[in-house]
Amino acid sequence: MFRQYVYQAQIENRSEGVFEGSIELLQAGSVGVSKVIAPQSTYARTRRHISDSDDSVTLFIGRTQGLVIDQAGEQHEFRPGNGFLYYGAIPGLAASSAPISMWGIKVAADRLMTASARTAQPMSISAEQPAMKLITQYLHSFSTVAESSDADVRDAFGMHLSDLLMLIVGTDRDTLELIKGRGLKAARTDVVLRLIAREYASPNLSAERIGLTLGITARQVHRLLEETTKTFYEHLLERRLLEARRLLTDPSCGVLPVTEIAQRTGFVDRTHFNHTFRTRFGETPTDAREAAVRENARRFLGTSIR
């Protein structure tokens, strides 16, 4: 599968037993995204393999450690979050000392090089580089996008990844301005919203904390959200309140005290929770739960309970 979907190469299984691995693939517009899991092995792409004319460029990103890659004198050891820009038109060798997992973002070389201000060359990329942090966070959406039947969603996903990759490689001034106006800001905003949706239950979640994750300042986080018509706090509060309402009206959560539901959704103070919930939904948390109980009973019995 590696030969078919990533690059033609000579592969030697160095693990005990048969070679067992997997590749999940997503075609996002003109960008190919893959999640690779493989056993301890060596991979050699020689000049013979290069004759396949696959000169595309792939950003490999470590999800585990244990893989070392060598191309054109540039050696790189993968660790979670760091990456290596691999050129299909250049011979390369990779060897793993343990089972590995990594991401691959593959784009056509001519598309990348047309916009690049640098000569094509393999390069190691730190996990701390801001664009790499954005890519790593963005890849958390891989499964959701892969399951989507909306071509626009896939195209946007691929465009943002491609734009971020161009920023890593280095672009000319015109392309840089295009990316800043189109992809970088949109990708950063999207990642901020995804982080809020994922981390809302943490009572310590803040713009500062998200900024540290992405390598930007809290002020930049706030500015990114300006065009969404909601502030950081409003996005966070809305996510917490919606989840709290879901738990309060879920019959399977009926034994949970209201205070525990408040804590589970990031609220520290019960009074503040009650006030914001009533402001948002026009009823108290207890009222919402009782109304849900009556509605569920009515549906179950087929009659109104007053």
Rank of each mutant, 00 (worst) to 15 (best):
His140Cys: 06
Lys133Phe: 03
Ile135Met: 06
Arg154Ile: 06
Ala151Glu: 15
Val153Met: 12
Gln137Cys: 08
Gly158Asp: 08
Ala156Val: 09
His140Trp: 13
Ser149Ile: 07
Ser149Ala: 14
Tyr138Ser: 07
Ser143Gln: 13
Val153Asp: 05
Ala151Leu: 12
Glu147Arg: 15
Ser149Trp: 13
His160Ser: 08
Gln129Asp: 03
Phe157Trp: 12
Ala131Thr: 02
Val145Phe: 06
Thr136Asp: 10
Met159Trp: 10
Ala127Glu: 09
Tyr138Gly: 01
Gly158Asn: 07
Phe142Ser: 10
Glu147Ala: 15
Leu134Asp: 01
Glu128Ser: 06
Glu147Pro: 00
Gln129Thr: 02
Ala156Trp: 10
His160Gly: 05
Met132Thr: 01
Ala156Gly: 05
Ala127Val: 01
Phe157Tyr: 15
Asp152Leu: 14
Tyr138Gln: 06
Asp150His: 10
Pro130Arg: 07
Thr144Tyr: 12
Asp155Phe: 05
Ala151Tyr: 12
Met132Tyr: 06
Ala151Cys: 04
Ser143Asn: 11
Thr136Cys: 13
Asp155Tyr: 08
Ala127His: 09
Met159Asn: 11
Phe142Ile: 06
Ser141Ala: 15
Ile135Arg: 02
Ala156Ile: 09
Gln137Asp: 11
Ala131Asp: 04
Ala127Asn: 02
Met132Phe: 01
Ser149His: 15
Ile135Cys: 02
Glu128Arg: 13
Asp150Val: 08
Arg154His: 14
Ala146His: 08
Phe142Leu: 10
Glu147Trp: 11
Val145Glu: 04
Ala146Gln: 13
Ser141Thr: 09
Ala156Arg: 11
Ile135Thr: 02
Tyr138Phe: 11
Val153Trp: 09
Ser148Gln: 09
Ser141Met: 15
Gly158Leu: 06
Ile135Gly: 01
Met132Arg: 04
Ser149Lys: 12
Val145Pro: 02
Asp152Cys: 09
Leu139Asp: 02
Asp155Ile: 03
Met159Pro: 00
Leu134Glu: 03
Lys133Asn: 04
Gln129Met: 04
Gly158Ala: 08
Ser149Gly: 15
Leu139Met: 07
Thr136Leu: 10
Phe157His: 10
Glu128Met: 10
Lys133Arg: 15
Leu134Gly: 02
Ala151His: 12
His160Asn: 14
Arg154Ala: 11
Gln137Glu: 13
Val153Pro: 00
His140Asp: 13
Asp152Trp: 13
Thr136Met: 09
Thr136Trp: 09
Asp155Lys: 12
Leu139Asn: 04
Pro130Ile: 00
Met159Val: 02
Asp150Lys: 10
Tyr138Leu: 08
Val153Leu: 12
Ser149Phe: 14
Met159Cys: 06
Ser141Ile: 04
Ala127Thr: 00
Ile135Asp: 01
Thr144Ser: 14
Thr144Glu: 15
Glu128Gly: 02
Leu134Asn: 03
Leu139Gly: 03
Val153His: 07
Asp152His: 13
Tyr138Ile: 00
Gly158Ser: 09
Phe157Val: 03
Asp155Asn: 09
Glu128Asp: 14
Lys133Ile: 00
Asp150Pro: 03
Thr136Gln: 11
Phe142Asn: 06
Ser143Pro: 00
Pro130Tyr: 01
Ala146Val: 03
Met132Ile: 00
Gly158Cys: 07
Met159Ile: 01
Thr144Asp: 14
Glu128His: 11
Ala156Asp: 11
Leu134Arg: 05
Asp150Gln: 10
Gly158Ile: 04
Met159Gly: 04
Arg154Tyr: 10
